[in-house]
């Protein structure tokens, strides 16, 4: 039941994120200067921010940015990891150890600091998530190389090879179904990690650039407790982020249990 509820919730969030240009009452950057910091109600369901922008519209667009691009970055990491495993184990093993030794946030802020100050917000969005995707390949690559090693030593693999089955056929028909479940598990692990990473970077002002909204830069208002007390709707991005992560976790746990049972 929990898995079904979580899936329905994620589907609703995903749909509203994708339809944000249609269902959002206003544009994410439209300013109502005479209604800055307006309380919820009437024209603005969640109120407005200090620049007079509608919080609900910004939340919908932010969901489109964070909840769609973080899984895309996770998919990129998994794809890069699979490609890296095509190289000899020594290279992958050594490289993954080196990459895993570098705290990603330091790597990320150093790369962000290299970008020009006038980087376009839409490019900053793509770069933020692309950098995450590229920087996060090492973890899944280590898991994949372990799985491949296990497979190569397994009885069925030896049997298949001794039976003279072609290498490509072994890979495609026998090995890929096993690797696919590992890849999906890695994807399920990485997507929430990237959502949280974007949130941390956004809070620091090093993620997606204004005026483009993301869950991370919407959370920056939490630094002003007086504003939160006046308008508790400021907590909406945090609540949505937490609910999405809990739903992803519920789906992941149930799927894992099902796979183990199978």
């Amino acid at each position: 039941m929990w898995k079904r509820l979580a899936l329905i919730f994620l589907l609703l969030v995903g749909t509203s994120a994708l339809l944000s240009p249609v269902i959002a009452p206003f544009s994410y950057s439209e300013q109502f200067r005479d209604s800055a910091n307006a309380p919820p109600g009437g024209k603005f369901l969640l109120g407005t921010d200090d620049m007079g922008r509608d919080r609900l519209s910004r939340l919908l667009y932010a969901t489109a940015v964070s909840a769609v691009l973080a899984p895309a970055a996770a998919a990129l990491s998994v794809l890069l990891a699979l490609l890296a495993c095509a190289f000899p184990g020594l290279v992958v093993g050594g490289l993954t150890t080196i990459c895993l030794s570098i705290p990603w946030i330091f790597l990320f802020i150093i790369l962000r600091a290299e970008l020009p100050l006038n980087t376009d917000p839409s490019i900053s969005v793509l770069l933020t998530f692309a950098l995450m995707g590229v920087a996060g390949w090492a973890g899944p690559a280590r898991v994949f190389s372990g799985s491949i090693r296990e497979m190569m030593e397994s009885g069925w693999m030896l049997q298949a090879r001794s039976a003279g089955i072609a290498g490509w056929r072994i890979g495609l028909v026998y090995a890929w179904p096993h690797l696919r479940s590992v890849a999906l598990a890695q994807f399920r692990v990485l997507a929430p990690v990237y959502i949280l990473a974007e949130a941390s970077l956004g809070l620091l002002g090093l993620g997606v650039a204004e005026p483009m909204p993301s869950w991370g830069n919407l959370l920056r208002d939490l630094q002003h407790p007086d504003m939160v007390r006046q308008n508790p709707a400021i907590l909406a991005p945090l609540l949505l982020l937490m609910l999405c992560l809990l739903a992803i976790e519920a789906v992941a746990v149930k799927t894992h249990e099902k796979e183990v049972f199978r």
Partner: peptide, 26 residues
């Protein structure tokens, strides 16, 4: 310090910090 270095684009400081942290963690 790393955050301030990133915001002010102080690359010598940021690079040194990354190198030290990487060395410590490794």
């Amino acid at each position: 310090l790393a955050w301030k270095a990133a915001v002010s684009r102080d690359l010598p400081l940021l690079s040194a910090l990354s190198l030290i942290i990487t060395f410590l963690v490794a």
